[in-house]
Nucleic acid binder design. Structure first.
Lengths: 206, 206, 206, 206
DNA sequence: CATGAATGAGGTTTCATTCAT
DNA sequence: CATGAATGAAACCTCATTCAT
């Protein structure tokens, strides 16, 4: 990796931060380099100096947000805790994370719309999800002591879990419209989080 | 409004169909009018003749795909059927629909990324979801006869239901990556559909 | 000349009238054939059927308006009338005409900006101005009987006369701005007309 | 505001100068940005870099020419000079100016044809015409000492004055045609200038 | 490290005109 | 006589990128 002076690093970060916001809001094709530099006030040449190209800048933006997912705090959760506690904790963790990181959500969706091609190009390590590891543990334990149904597949469970949370972000506007309910309202979201927790808990228990 | 001849209508439809595919695959900004006309072989001027602008073409594409959702056949489902049958039917209906209409999924996600602005511009009628009406019925019945838990809100249930199905499409690539499971595989999807059905059924029953 | 049926002639006239208005307001280059047909509601093909091309339509528009100038009523004026009466009559005649025919003014200016090229193409007859003939007469008479100064050239007098009237139309907006006076106001124009008459009358008398 | 280097300013000026000539000759709609850049040899992107849009470039062209009018040297004219000298000086000043600045004349006419909309957009200051101030002075003085008729309104006088000069430029081609006199001929123009001076002087004197 | 100038390709849209019926 | 469909060229403007200092 290149090393930059302190001032340079600051410039770099300002560009990256601005780019993340714009790419998240308007997509890769919908965002112009001019817009990024106009927003930051930094000279356009700097984008190419620090990032090489628009695409590489986008990938760095994607990587930066993606890294946040891995930083999800799991410290307070342990495989030896009861399954109920673990599941509801994961749900609220995801809810908070997704709501707090709308840029991440948008970039993730975009990447999926793009068939994951940028992640391929970036050769991101296929890091095993720690969340999945945890779920595998607690489900196995739960199945042993009879609190979890036998045919629960932790992978599908994790997907359900994510899907239940993500949908509030990824389809917020169309759902608000169709169901006449404001999914931007904090109180509504609190109830939604609880509803998700409860339905999943009942969904897996034996 | 303008009247078109049969031949003109054909041209119009060819443009629209092509546009739907490209907008779904590459997004609004990522698709050029040139690309659309090159694909169809129709003169570029015709796009503006029939649709007025790229944006209006996009909106018509969106409306066309969106209309498919409303056409989801609910005829075989009835409010007086048992809740189990209804829920699992809805799940498999959504699964099939989303898998069969990837363009719809992409356009829907894009519209959400765009904060629903195009739907607003189009002044789409806020049609009450028939799916929601159905769920409200069967949940109420189920709660009366004791098969469904009291605190199930049909709206959150529907969202969960959609989220559980949608996630397999909207996040297919990143999930396949992270969980080391091929979500493009038909058999995997069959299992996933069953898993979703089961978890939700257990999730709501008293 | 071609002959058209009554209905056809009507269509033709509607196109021509619309074209005159648009060409006068927005210029030749600034007016599109589409705009003309959209305004009339007549099919675009008809423009080419009746006029051949946009340029020929423009020339016909120009000729139509130009013809109005020749129709200026001079019947009540005679060479044997006193010069004062003739001059003030001409002034008010021009004033009325120019104010009543803004399209003429605009097309005339445009033609001058275009170096008279269309008039050349149209091979318009270099019709001797009847106004000039009249002026030549009365000036000669006036000079003979000592009421008009010797060195008055009727041609320059006519130009002055036209210039004094035309300026209120051709430069209405910039003059209104610069002189803080509303040259669109009827009463102001009445005074202006009188002022022009008076200044010219005193300007030529011996 | 943006800062430009010396070299950039040069490029800017070349574009502007070329634009003035073309806009004056062919009008706003009749001039294409491509034509401007082809004439200068400068890349098209630069037009938008320095001027923002074709319209803004046009406005700057208009403003540049318009500014020349204000620069009309009035230094040699003083309110305490006799009215005859002042009027004939103004006439020849205008004649020279208009003949020397055909681009100004064309842009001014165009702006009037456009109802002064660009001047409105540009929020040009409604600078009091120094020429008018001067005329007000000398007319008042002339009226006091009995050399100028009482009912001369300096504003209408100025308009007449301008009209008498302008007409030779604004309607040069149609007048040359109609009156069978070459208004492009220097000697003819000299005589015309004198005729205007004389008619106006006699027109105002008591 | 940083800046403004510059570029060629391509973006969306509109043009005047012709075709087929 | 009249219509809607169709066209290729050119309009204005923006793009990601590179140059020169």
């Amino acid at each position: 990796m290149k090393k930059f002076t302190e001032k340079g690093e600051l410039t770099r970060q300002r560009i990256l931060k601005t780019a993340i916001g714009l790419f998240a809001k308007k997509g890769f094709a919908g965002t112009s380099v001019d817009e990024i530099v106009d927003t930051t006030g930094i000279n356009k040449r700097m984008v190419y100096h620090y990032f090489g190209s628009k695409e590489l800048l986008y990938q760095e933006a994607l990587a930066t947000e993606y890294a946040k997912l891995e930083a999800l705090e799991l410290e307070t959760l342990h495989p030896d805790e009861p399954v109920e506690k673990v599941v509801s904790s994961i749900v609220s963790t995801y809810f908070s994370f997704l709501l707090d990181n709308p840029d991440f959500v948008m970039l993730l969706l975009q990447e999926n719309m793009n068939r994951g091609l940028n992640l391929d190009k970036m050769e991101m390590p296929l890091s095993k999800s720690p969340m999945l590891e945890l779920l595998i543990q607690v489900v196995k334990t739960g199945q042993k002591n009879g609190t979890v149904r036998k045919n629960i597949d932790p992978r599908f469970l994790l997907i359900s879990l994510i899907g239940n949370c993500m949908i509030y972000c990824s389809n917020r506007f169309t759902l608000s419209r169709a169901l006449a309910i404001d999914l931007g309202d904090k109180q509504v979201l609190k109830k939604a989080c609880d509803a998700v927790s409860e339905i999943l808990l009942h969904g897996i228990k034996a």
